[in-house]
Design a protein around this nucleic acid. Structure first.
Lengths: 142, 142
DNA sequence: CCTGATTTTGAAAACTCTTTTCAAAATTTC
DNA sequence: GAAATTTTGAAAAGAGTTTTCAAAATCAGG
């Protein structure tokens, strides 16, 4: 009863002559369970609860693997540490970050995307990726 | 023949019981001369050419001072180091970053701003600041 | 199901960028 | 000018992340 994500990971691993290990399975399972945007340290703590012997370096390495295999997406909100969100079967979106409680809301706005393309084209620029972060106060914190 | 920016810095300094030093003047003058988005290290190198005795820590401290006094704006493009741009008398804008040559183009799009407010309001979110970075390839690199 | 080549692991060290510490030097105030 | 306070440069510390290295695990092929 492996998840689709586990299959993606296994495919990536075999296609790149890497090896499936219990650490990688464990980190993936814990990552899939957390619905929020986790940092490496946070994920490490969660993983440690189930598999106390797994080291922090392995979590970092495994997150890099997830990013390469498109299972995870790396986010940088400028607070000094990277965060990771699920990417497999999740469509593109932007983020609103509450600077009070740290909550992260996801959103998309088709017209914003459209105008981004427009302004890029006007400058002869081809967009490969973008990052839109709105910082502010969420409804709960007001 | 002090620049307006130098006056802003001096006002901020006196209003906060800080002290005007030749290091701070020197760093500001060099910062004002560079039109691109500089990192602390880059600015340190430029400053060193004119004032070799100024230390890196002083450049970091002075950039923090510029940020507090609204002379500079801190940017983080997610490449591991912060960059600084002039803020005094410069209006808000977003950035396009060429991942090939590192060139940074500035732009604004009133409708993008408007829709950001709209989507935030729809979620009960009050924006205090935002960050829109488009990564891609500029016209020169294609 | 061994065996051997290769990869992965955990722990610690290294690294990068930034901040802090501390005693000496500079600035401002009276 | 002298005293109180701030700033400085150099080095150490810090935070987050990556790398190193020897031991352990994985996985082909026989």
């Amino acid at each position: 009863m492996d998840s689709k994500e586990m299959e993606v990971l296994q495919d990536y691993i075999t296609q790149n002559n890497l090896k499936i290990t219990k650490q990688r399975r464990a980190v993936l399972n814990v990552f899939l369970e957390c619905e929020n945007h986790v940092s490496a340290e946070e994920l490490y703590k969660l993983v440690s609860e189930k598999e106390p012997k797994i080291g922090l370096a392995t979590v970092y390495r495994t997150l890099a693997l997830f990013t390469q295999s498109q299972l995870a997406h790396e986010l940088d909100f400028g607070d000094g540490q990277k965060r990771y969100e699920h990417q497999f079967m999740h469509s593109h979106h932007d983020h609103m970050i509450c600077t009070e409680c740290g909550k992260i809301l996801e959103f998309t706005h088709p017209l914003i995307e459209k105008f981004q393309e427009e302004v890029a084209a006007r400058n002869g620029f081809t967009i490969t990726s973008h990052k839109l972060h709105l910082f502010g106060i969420c409804s709960d914190c007001r």
